[in-house]
């Protein structure tokens, strides 16, 4: 039972800023008690007790999980709504599944890259060349800025390329031509 006289005295001291921490704790406990006289109820707002108590009242205990609430006489709650729990678990499993698939993809790609680098035509020096860090080149330093000069060089480069491709093709067709008699021999035998 809250003593109104003690409570009044504590409130006076609190208003005069003379209470100790222990007294304030005691004051708060008194204001929170259910048998608080009506004339002191409005003091609850000093400590935010009113709002907290109203919030607590609005929250129904075991509202989200009524099957966990204690029952009188140990009565059965009826069917246990296990749906929510299963749903959380399946979402979690889905996330783990995606993570596992992504990890698997990383490992597979890493494996493919590793294999492709090791099945090249000349592995030793190639691997060394491929692992060098590319350095950004400032091509503007080497850029031809005179259109006529650029045209002259491009023309020469393209002519060089086209001539060499033609030459290579000519050599190839010449060699294929040499194969013709051998081809004929095989054809005549068959």
């Amino acid at each position: 039972m809250t003593d109104p006289q003690i409570l009044r005295a504590l409130l006076d001291r609190y208003e005069a800023a003379e209470t100790s921490v222990a007294e304030e704790r005691e004051l708060k406990a008194m204001l929170q008690s259910t048998d608080l006289p009506k004339e002191f109820v409005h003091y609850r707002q000093w400590f935010g007790i009113q709002a907290a108590m109203q919030t607590a009242k609005s929250i129904k205990p075991f509202a989200d999980a009524p099957w966990l609430a204690p029952t009188k006489n140990g009565a059965d709650h009826g069917p246990t709504p296990a749906l929510r729990v299963v749903s959380n678990r399946s979402r979690s499993n889905f996330r783990y599944g995606i993570a596992a698939a992504a990890m698997l993809a990383v490992v597979m790609v890493a494996g493919l890259v590793f294999l492709s680098q090791n099945t090249g035509t000349s592995p030793g020096p190639l691997a060394k060349a491929n692992t060098e860090t590319p350095v950004a080149i400032d091509w503007s330093k080497y850029e031809i800025t005179d259109p006529k000069e650029a045209t002259r060089i491009t023309r020469a480069a393209l002519t060089n390329v086209s001539r060499r491709i033609e030459n290579g093709s000519r050599i190839a067709s010449k060699e294929v031509g040499r194969m013709e008699p051998i081809h004929n021999v095989f054809n005549s035998k068959s």
Partner: peptide, 19 residues
């Protein structure tokens, strides 16, 4: 590129890089 080779078949195509 092949058409280019035919059009310039009389030229040597040496690249002179002296700017």
């Amino acid at each position: 590129i092949g058409e280019l080779a035919k059009a310039f078949e009389d030229e040597g195509g040496e690249i002179d890089l002296n700017i």
